[in-house]
Computed example of a mutant assay.
Amino acid sequence: MAETETEPLYCIGCGAQIQTTDPNAAGYTPASALEKGLAAGEVYCQRCFRLRHYNEISDVRLTDDDFLKLLTQIGETDALIVNVIDIFDFSGSIIPGLHRFVGKNPVLLVGNKVDVLPRSVKRSKVRRWLQEQAHAVGLRPLDVLLTSAKNGYELDDLLAAIDKYRAGRDVYVVGVTNVGKSTLINQIIKRTTGTQDLITTSRFPGTTLDKIEIPLDDGRELVDTPGIIHREQMAYYLGPKDLRLVAPQKPIKPKTFQLNSEQTLFLGGLARFDYERGPHTGFTLYLDNNLLVHRTKLSNADDFYERQAGKLLQPPRPNELAKFPPLARIQFTPKVKSDLVFAGLGWITVPAGVTVSGWAPEGVAVTIRPALI
């Protein structure tokens, strides 16, 4: 390991301990680059350097045991837990069992990416909905706030809430990968110190590899933690060029399809929606604006997917098709107006009393929930 005379060095982009011996391990940087970094006063590992300057990603991942150890350590501290979730992908951005790990520590729930919701959606309703969803999975947050790490929406309100609820304690910021956690912390650093883009961020899962500790004015710390791997997210089945389709950057423009029973919608080649039984009715889709939707008859759907996956139905791209899992089906007949959710991709609003099926790659969650909009 590379060290100063008194203590180890850590990458200021991802938190990994700097080392100059193993190019395939976290924290690697060539000795020559390390010398330049020390002279400039900022040390990045090679992985962060390439990601920041060339948008290249090296496949360095933490194990499930690493994340379990991290969560256990958080429960043993006396701190405020700031749980960042992706409003666009609530079910795919909840940390499974978080309420069991945080112990007695208070939790502040922060709904990020509020800017991608349609502008007509009332923010007060979104906050209430998030509170209800959190309670349903066992979380009892002190408060729920909405923000946009991308544009700093209501950042001052968030900073005030953190200062209020931490009561002189450390702050741990936790979340699954791709919720915008490190981008949000960069906004906080920029607002409070003027330093820009200190922590490495990207659409790639697992960018932060170890805890990054940022000092607060009172001697306490704001701690950015590695994104928890949530294996039910669609992002883990997409190539780098298509990650933008599961991380919308602009407000979603809902699309409504009028369907008869026994019709199918393909969401690219990533997922499938079957309207099995019910009257002629409309279904509204909330997806990235660039994801193409194709309609066909239910009776032709299997054959259509077999012929067109990787061709007309993209993503997956042709060179990724061999590794793409088969689509698995789950059927629902909701009793009230509901959202059929494809974790990490989007959702379709379904009226009460009809029978529908959602198909997604094996391992990606398909669930039903009370309608958000």
Score class of each variant (00 low, 15 high):
S357H: 10
Q46V: 10
R119S: 08
R307G: 03
Q249S: 15
N186M: 04
V110K: 01
K335H: 12
P370R: 14
R244A: 03
T4F: 13
N178T: 12
V171D: 05
Q187L: 12
W359R: 00
R203H: 14
Q233L: 15
N83S: 07
K181M: 00
V354D: 09
N178A: 08
V171E: 07
G138H: 03
A25F: 13
Y153Q: 12
E232L: 05
K250T: 11
Q73A: 13
T193W: 08
G27K: 01
N319Y: 13
P30V: 06
C14R: 05
V126Q: 08
Q19G: 07
P215M: 08
T225L: 09
R277H: 14
V102A: 13
A134S: 11
G219N: 09
A371P: 02
L68E: 14
A360I: 04
G152P: 11
G175N: 08
E213N: 08
C48Y: 01
T177K: 05
A352G: 10
C48P: 01
F101I: 06
D218H: 02
L298V: 06
A247E: 15
N186S: 05
S299M: 09
A365M: 12
F283W: 15
A40S: 14
T183N: 00
R128W: 04
N24G: 08
Y237G: 07
I18W: 12
P318N: 02
R231H: 15
D22P: 01
K253R: 02
T195V: 15
P30S: 06
G13P: 09
L159P: 00
Q17H: 05
L117Q: 09
N260D: 15
T284E: 11
V176M: 03
I18H: 05
F67S: 01
E262D: 11
P23M: 02
Q249L: 15
Y28W: 05
V293Y: 13
V144A: 05
G97I: 11
R119E: 14
G111V: 09
D218Q: 04
T367K: 10
P205Y: 10
